[in-house]
Design a binder for these strands. Structure first.
Length: 938
RNA sequence: GCUGAAGUGGUGGAAUUGGUAGACACGUUGGACUUAAAAUCCAAUGUCCAUUAGGACGUACGGGUUCAAGUCCCGUCUUCAGUACCA
């Protein structure tokens, strides 16, 4: 009887589906365990072999935890809103919902064929109205909240309104827009409603504001900071420009400190935590006010080095700074305006690329040093960024390299305020070894002492204060797209109002085309039926807007990260239509115990999701404020691309081993045309595309055409994609699962090489043969030998350790060794082979189920108990040990049954060449140096 | 520049965390079985010297600690990832 994997795998996938084997319930007396994968975006291309890597790892762990007696929640769903579906819709006119549905079907089929133990009864799709109803609900909660610094949590906006009407805003400790001015209770009560609403927007956690945004004209939408890489869009690689627009934003900056502190409580990788810390970018320092000579304006600067304040020799404003035009003197006006204009013309990219050249211009104005009262010239320079801090710096050339370079370039003075430090060549930026001098009351102090004293003095003088600055910006939350969550928002007199929970969801309307409208409105502007009737509380026709009961709805949609910022909570109670999840379910499952996904989400999804979780925690609707206890970043499986060399300007192709000094263009060839020896199937290549039909090939005497290989990201456009479907039909899902694990450590990036799969495949065949002979099952109920028991327990120990440490690659090797040993020892005992199957079941569940059934078990192996390791089986009656000394002296010595430590020592002293025999428990190691025993361990 | 990770045979990678480096697999070579192929099985496979026995050298490079270093320390180089005029 052969190992017929296709038949076996189909059989058990059907069995699991029909018996709901992996459905999780909240009933259990067992401890809970929640294993989650980052849910996929269902793209039209389907899955390639790289995608399931993380799913296989999480599946192994989930199955292992079930064997270990946990009640495991292991769900899956789809992050199904997004740009590609919409762009496809723009091109073809097909509704994104339709193409998304088709793509999901493909994904589901591909996921099913790999035998994952997902609980599909809890599937979520971010694009389904039943789901985004609750995304909209969370948005409403954010809109109705403000951040109270004195309680350090989000509070309802109604409470804030009450405070305003009773005592004004003077005592309110809130995270809010800088433009908010102080008002009294009577001021507030006399403000017209529209003005009150405008003020409240400065406090809300979801707020509407005119902000400078990253506008991508090609995509026709704004992008968040994490969606831009080096000044171009992450998706598509288009130009991004800065532009002022009225947009929804999320006040994530309110949570900066808690997002930072929370990192210390979770088991995520250091690399990932570090990149979140960098992204949040906390810096401690001071805000210093420099009054201007000859006018009332004040330049505010942020500095992390208040200790160096006596080293200030000039100030620099960003070209975009609002004071630039105001303070520039007549004489300097022309050159300043020219400079500002020139910088504005340069794109973000040019500015980034050209960081070394120094440019700037003097404004003619002077500020006043807060302590010395000396005049400080004010310059404009593009090394100061408008978007960070206050957009202005106090320049201390002796203590900051950029200030130093600027000062050298424009011949500005560089006063030295560091004791015994030479600053002739470069600035001195070391904080630790600083002793301040030439600084009046700060002389002789260290960085820390001087900073404290400077801040205290500034505060006393009223021209500065200690401040913590964060790099983290509020997140833009509007997208000018169709395929996203509509906002539950309508506008009265230009001010936003949210729609009540009971009327949710506000569903996406039908539109004719998915492009923006002629007058530049987002695609929802094309919908006929898209206005809110406050009398009937429903969406009605646009054309009926009468501005007394029927009002326009928000036309933007939410960004991709909205739906993914809370989905892990939805899985706990995915089909609840009354709440986003019941308190009962939330309290039972608490949080994700193990989260597996790619590290590319470090500063996007993983930060936003933590933010929303903390917000929901403040509302008391979730029980914990970090959503994932442990997180593992799986590496990527890369493709091995094949390139054919074309001699430039010709249609002649040359084998890699024949190239001498020709100029070569490298062209991707489909990897399926190339064998494992890098030889191209020339005929297949010629018929591949028309331009290659007439190609001429230069080869060596052997007539073989060799290609060049290179490891790249697996992608359709690079023709290096390997499809899991073909691997499954050729080798089976169990082989694919084992092989992806065998390839190397989970976190590592590694290239795919189909040839290697034969190793794990023949392991499965050997495993099969250990249980099944020509006439059926050959396992018998006999007593195993000691030797066989040893192999089993050795394997239990290793595999348990491996899974707990997530080093799945080495346990595949362990299985191979075990099967080889048991085959060599002619093992046929059920007492060995049955527990062995349970060990293998998480990795290769189909074959394990099949053999488990053939051994006569009625229930699924998924419910079987994981075998316990018993160390007594590893004890040997006697063993001889070679003992090695410093590499040169090597001998073995004899140790009889009851030889004591003293006896060993005596033998070693005598340097007798003997055999070391140990009885019973074998020590882990005996460390001996000539003349004495250092240690006996174990 | 800064932060994080890494550098081991022809290849992917092991190494009980300081204890016989190269497990396991791919590939390669040879052999068995077969009319043949596939499949399967066996053997060899870090480099160099040696007929063998055996020996020398070997974990990016240079030092160091230790009876003992791929592992720890110092310095150098390289690769990958993230981030960047962040004041």
């Amino acid at each position: 009887m052969m190992y017929n994997f296709n038949e076996i795998e189909a059989k058990w996938q059907k069995y699991w589906y029909e018996n709901k084997t992996f459905q999780a319930e909240i009933n259990s007396t067992k401890p809970k365990y929640y294993v989650l994968d980052m849910f996929p975006y269902p793209s039209g291309a389907g899955l390639h072999v790289g995608h399931p890597l993380g799913y296989i790892a999480s599946d192994i762990y989930a199955r292992y935890k079930r064997h270990k007696g946990f009640n495991v929640l292991h769900p899956q769903g789809y992050d199904s809103f997004g740009l590609p579906a919409e762009q496809y819709a723009i091109q073809t006119g097909q509704h994104p919902a339709v193409t998304t549905e088709v793509n999901i079907k493909t994904y589901r089929r591909q996921l099913d064929q790999m035998g994952f133990s997902f609980d599909w009864s809890r599937e979520v799709r971010t694009s389904s109205p039943e789901y985004y109803k609750w995304t909209q609900w969370i948005f409403i909660q954010l809109f109705n909240s403000w951040y109270n610094k004195s309680t350090d949590k989000a509070n309802p906006i109604s409470k804030l309104i009450k405070i305003f009407s009773l005592e004004g805003n003077a005592n309110v400790q809130a995270v809010c827009d800088d433009s908010v001015t102080v008002f009294t209770d009577s001021d507030w009560n006399s403000f017209p409603p529209k003005q009150q609403q405008q003020i409240l927007l400065h406090y809300r956690l979801a707020y509407l504001a005119e902000t400078e945004v990253n506008w991508c004209p090609e995509l026709g939408t704004v992008l968040a900071n994490d969606e831009i890489i080096n000044g171009i869009s992450e998706r598509g690689g288009h130009q991004v420009v800065r532009k002022k627009m009225t947009q929804w934003s999320m006040r994530i900056s309110a949570y900066a400190e808690r997002l930072l502190l929370g990192l210390n409580t979770i088991d995520w990788t250091d690399a990932l935590k570090e990149s979140q810390r960098n992204w949040i970018g906390k810096s401690v320092g001071a805000l210093v006010k420099f009054g201007l000579k000859d006018c009332d304006d004040v330049i505010e600067v942020f500095t992390t080095r208040p200790d160096t304040i006596f080293g200030v020799s000039f100030m620099t404003l960003a070209p975009e700074h609002e004071l630039v035009s105001k303070i520039t003197t007549k004489n300097q006006k022309a050159s300043v305006e020219a400079y500002v204009l020139a910088t504005a013309r340069r794109s973000e990219r040019e500015r980034i690329a050209d960081v070394n050249s120094i440019s700037g211009v003097f404004t003619g104005a002077y500020a006043e040093h807060p302590f010395t009262k000396k005049p400080v010239p004010v310059w404009v320079g593009d090394y100061v960024l408008a978007g960070y801090g206050t957009g202005a710096v106090m320049a201390v050339p002796c203590g900051d390299q950029r200030d130093y370079n600027f000062a050298k370039h424009f011949n500005l003075p560089i006063p030295n305020i560091f004791e015994d430090i030479d600053i002739n060549k470069q600035a001195f930026t070391d904080k630790v070894n600083t002793i301040i001098c030439n600084s009046d009351f700060l002389n002789g102090l260290s960085f820390k002492e001087a900073s404290e004293k400077a801040i205290n003095t500034l505060e006393d003088l009223g021209c500065g204060l200690g401040k913590i600055n964060y790099r983290l910006r509020d997140a833009v939350f509007s997208r000018q797209r169709y395929w996203g969550e509509p906002f539950p928002v309508y506008y009265v007199d230009g001010m936003p109002k949210v729609i009540d929970k009971e009327f949710l969801p506000i569903s996406l309307p039908k539109v004719e085309k998915y492009l923006p409208t002629e007058n530049g409105e987002p695609p929802l502007g094309r919908a006929d039926v898209w206005a809110w009737d406050t009398l009937q509380n429903r969406v009605v026709k646009n054309s009926l807007i009468d501005h007394s009961s029927i009002f326009p709805l928000e036309l933007n949609t939410m960004p991709g990260w909205a739906g993914s910022s809370w989905y892990f909570n939805r899985y706990m109670d995915a089909n609840n239509s009354d709440e986003f999840a019941s308190q009962n379910a939330l309290n039972y499952w608490q949080e994700v115990d193990l989260y597996i996904g790619g590290s590319e989400h470090a500063t996007g999804h993983l930060l936003y999701a933590r933010f929303w979780q903390k917000f929901l925690y403040d509302l008391n609707v979730v029980p914990v404020d970090e959503f994932a206890k442990k997180l593992i970043n799986q590496g990527m499986i890369l493709g091995t691309s094949a390139f054919v060399g074309r001699i430039e300007g010709t249609n002649t192709y040359i084998s890699v081993d024949q190239i001498t000094n020709e100029t070569i263009q490298w062209i991707h060839a489909d990897v399926s045309f190339v064998n494992s020896s890098d030889e191209l199937d020339v005929v297949a290549f010629k018929t591949w595309r028309e331009e290659f039909n007439t190609a001429i090939f230069i080869t060596g005497d052997n007539h073989l055409f060799k290609v060049k290989r290179e490891v790249e990201k697996m992608s359709k456009s690079k023709y290096n994609v390997v499809n899991p479907d073909s691997i499954c039909s050729q080798y089976g899902a169990d082989s694919l699962r084992l092989y992806e694990m065998f390839l190397g450590p989970l976190e590592q990036y590694k290239p795919w090489n189909t040839a290697g799969i034969s190793g794990v495949h023949s392991f499965l065949k050997k495993l099969w043969k250990l249980y099944v002979g020509n006439l059926g099952i050959i396992v018998v109920d006999s007593e195993p030998s000691k030797d066989q028991l040893k192999t089993l327990h050795k394997t239990i120990k290793k595999v348990t350790e491996d899974i707990e440490n997530f080093s799945f690659n080495t346990s595949v090797s362990t299985f191979m060794i075990a099967v080889n040993e048991l085959a060599a020892k002619k093992c046929s005992s059920k007492k060995i082979l049955e527990p062995l199957l349970v060990l293998i079941a998480p990795y290769a569940p189909h074959i394990a189920e099949e053999l488990w059934e053939r051994l006569g078990n009625k229930d699924s192996i998924a419910t079987a108990e994981f075998p316990e390791f018993d160390p007594s089986y590893l004890v040997e009656s006697s063993k001889s040990y070679p003992i090695s000394f410093n590499g040169k002296m090597r001998f073995t010595m004899d140790l009889s049954l009851d030889l004591s430590r003293e006896a060993i020592e005596e033998a070693v002293m005598a340097n007798k060449k003997t055999q070391l025999q140990l009885e019973g428990r074998i020590p882990k190691k005996i460390i001996i140096v000539p003349g004495k025993i250092v240690n006996i361990v174990g």
